[in-house]
Design a protein around this nucleic acid. Sequence first.
DNA 1: AAGTTAAATGACAGCGCTGTCAATTTTCAT
DNA 2: ATGAAAATTGACAGCGCTGTCATTTAACTT
Lengths: 338, 338
Amino acid sequence: MKVTINDVADLSGVSMKTVSRVINNESSVRQTTRDKVMAAVKELNYQPNLAARSLAGSNSYTIAYIYDNPNAYYVIDMQNGILSECKKQNFELVIHPCNSKADNIIEEITSMIKHSRIAGVVLTPPFSEMPEITDQLTAMGVKLVSILSGHSLAENHTPCIMINDFDASFELTKHLIDLGHKDIGFISGGKEHKSTSERIDGYKSALIVNNISVRDELIVDGEYSFESGVQGAEKLLAIDPRPTAIFSCNDEIAAGALFSSRLKNINIPDQLSIVGFENSPFSRQTWPKITTADQPNQTIAQNATALLINEIRGQDSDEVCQQFTPQLLVRDSSASFK
Amino acid sequence: MKVTINDVADLSGVSMKTVSRVINNESSVRQTTRDKVMAAVKELNYQPNLAARSLAGSNSYTIAYIYDNPNAYYVIDMQNGILSECKKQNFELVIHPCNSKADNIIEEITSMIKHSRIAGVVLTPPFSEMPEITDQLTAMGVKLVSILSGHSLAENHTPCIMINDFDASFELTKHLIDLGHKDIGFISGGKEHKSTSERIDGYKSALIVNNISVRDELIVDGEYSFESGVQGAEKLLAIDPRPTAIFSCNDEIAAGALFSSRLKNINIPDQLSIVGFENSPFSRQTWPKITTADQPNQTIAQNATALLINEIRGQDSDEVCQQFTPQLLVRDSSASFK
DNA sequence: AAGTTAAATGACAGCGCTGTCAATTTTCAT
DNA sequence: ATGAAAATTGACAGCGCTGTCATTTAACTT
């Protein structure tokens, strides 16, 4: 029934150890031997036992996705991307949701990594932006790949994927400007997220480049929630003359802003344009649908995983970092200013 | 550095084997011994090595969560529940998202189960309601636990958790009736879901019990989406005299109905009551917040996993099936009819 | 051709745990 | 108290593989 390395060894007439060498693609096996073994592997449809392998060997074939994110859509996308690459490369995935604010968080993570013999970790914000975590992991000899927000591709040695929120935000703002808007409000996300500051900077930069002065009263603090969008819009729409467009730091905020405008009988997009960010399902479940920036999370996760596995395998590739820029997705919540 | 079963055995003064028994919660270990061992486990912070365990044992300690569900919130909740029980019982989890409508779905699942040496599977709709899947799995000797919608606790031998959508729906409808509503519209979910018919039946039953006649024109077909809620409400609100309350088959539909009502300047809840179902984050991100039925998915998943692991361990418990009834959660979208 | 070095292969222990079965202790009836 | 049955515990082999190191074989020397 189940084929072991010994069966392969017997059939090909070599020792168990040599089969092991072939399986692991080690050097110093004669080509003729290698062929013999491979033939036997095929014939018996042999698949190495992962448990035995990781028990005996020092290296593991398991990676972990450690996250703390209230956004279920995001997590699922990431998870699916990671999973598809794992499947391709014969790695296993352990998922580990946890609370980044717990005070024993470092201990929790390290113990979990030791326990499950994790070879590498995929990190998303906020963990990817917490040096105490990344340093600790690196010190433990665990490989990692970080997914984070940023626009200057730092001289990073550890693999990472950068989301260029700055440029995307710039484009989104430019889209509004191109439509004729000059008084553009901004509802920000939580300050603790790097993506928030990146998006604010992109917004400001687009204004400046287009000779529109940045007015601080048009930028209201908020957090990544519907409620915050409602309140932010409330504030912005009380300004006289009121802004003709609102840039919301993400789609949830945009949905809140949309709601708030509806309450005031302000027609979207005729009297007010609203844009979001992320292309989350939220942005499609409103009416009108929200213009946003599309961030291909699943692809990002998959690429990140490929980078990580490369690193684990010790195959040095020239490409350790990648950058993604979310793309402008024009829908129905933005229109030209008349 | 790393603690093994031998360290625990030494510290507690028993044999390795006895520690193993305690870890695996086997019977025939004296309570005093068990306590001693547990104390040592705590002190050393021992965690069994999963690889060794599955290598040594004939049975595996890995379960799979196989799902096909577009609702990210649901999946995350389930996943967290399963994970927490796995952690408690020292099991591993493999997650396997897939498309229930693919034509090679059975083969995909069976091959995955063989390859990953899965001992048991957690199934949610639609898989839990597909006999071709459950039969195949059972035939393979894989233990399983099903989570599904239903109100008659069948004489089932395979473990399952039933969501009593019928009773919950009854309660929700009764809530509206108690508020004085008589003309209660119903926007249904997709017919392919058993939960839809259960919820319709509960609604009808509550009407009948309260001597309100069931009017078919008040029940509109739909599916589990925001858009469907918008359209369903559109239809219902065109009826003259229009219903004074709308029962939406889930929260997304309710959010759509809410939106649609706003457009027509119908004030919620003063002029129209709306209730949803599920207590998904959706129901909290609207304004007003939606009255709904709370379904504790995480707890459900955790209990289901406990049932499954019990079954895998061969510990026959009297309780193979459990029933959960989502609880009425009154919020701001329902009010008495004046 | 004999000696030397490098390449290829194999023998064996052991990773940390569980299954089997035998040894020990406890329990209970006589 | 005494023996038999039952409950509890332990000794030991081995799961399938890789690491180490010894051994064999091939490939060069001069």
